[in-house]
Design a protein around this nucleic acid. Sequence first.
DNA 1: GGCGGTAGTTCGTCTCGCGAATTGTAAGGC
DNA 2: GCCTTACAATTCGCGAGACGAACTACCGCC
Lengths: 150, 150
Amino acid sequence: MVAALVRSTFLVNAVYAESAREYGLTSQQGQLLCVLMAQSYGMGELGAVLGLAKSSLTGLVDRTERNGLVQRKPDPQDSRAVRIALTRKGSKVAEEFYVETCRRIENLTTGLSDADRETLAGLLGGVVEANKVPVVFLEPGGGAGLEHER
Amino acid sequence: MVAALVRSTFLVNAVYAESAREYGLTSQQGQLLCVLMAQSYGMGELGAVLGLAKSSLTGLVDRTERNGLVQRKPDPQDSRAVRIALTRKGSKVAEEFYVETCRRIENLTTGLSDADRETLAGLLGGVVEANKVPVVFLEPGGGAGLEHER
DNA sequence: GGCGGTAGTTCGTCTCGCGAATTGTAAGGC
DNA sequence: GCCTTACAATTCGCGAGACGAACTACCGCC
């Protein structure tokens, strides 16, 4: 049970990283793009969603911005704050990366029947729900979760 | 489906990292210790098992050795080669970390019935099998897998 | 006994993640 | 109105992690 979970985790990690690499992204940058597909965020919110310290985020956004994928926009309501949004190039890359990554992950389950896939999704969904995982992929809105994250 | 897999992956990652942190380890060092619990390895084999370039491994082993958890032993058959093995302290830490981490991961599934847990393990096991995931946790013997790793 | 392949290390470079200190701005309190 | 407190984000210094390319030392083999 534990072994299956841990090993499937490594599998998905590897697939995700591999897919990102092919789009010239790191896993973290890929994650950032996916989160931003839904909406723009301030640095603070983004830190909560991604489970990162704000100083970590500054660097990640810097590097991703340098690659022309995201941009910092001044927040009209609060001149201290900044909104991070995808650039046009970023939207394009995010979309392609997202679709391709989904395809590959879906592909991991080709050994299963449709019914099994259904069951697996349900069970995993239950585990995820029960443990308040932060929304790092798919689905906007939702919160930080993982109270013990750095 | 994809979302459930990705999110459970983040969950397990977080739990693993958190557990490692409490034992003064990084995830990678934790992984290294778990792999070495079963047997000693040469650097080359270790690279294959963990999916790392050999230059990456040198650093990981260096740091872990510095912490007194593993040691490099000369290979009696081949004086170029080196066998990486746990020290006594390393064995102790590995064992405790392993048990605790299993406990926590098991804990993630407390929302499920025994039957569901059984089903989940079976399905995930199937996915893992079908995709030749390398043995990074539990179970010795077995191979490298993930041909497309960096 | 010399030569090609193999095991590991070193080096330089980059990403990532953190905490502590810092800067600039928003908001309350009085 | 001004001043303090609180908050948003960045900067800095550090260490881990990952890579490829170049290098060293050694095994085997012809």
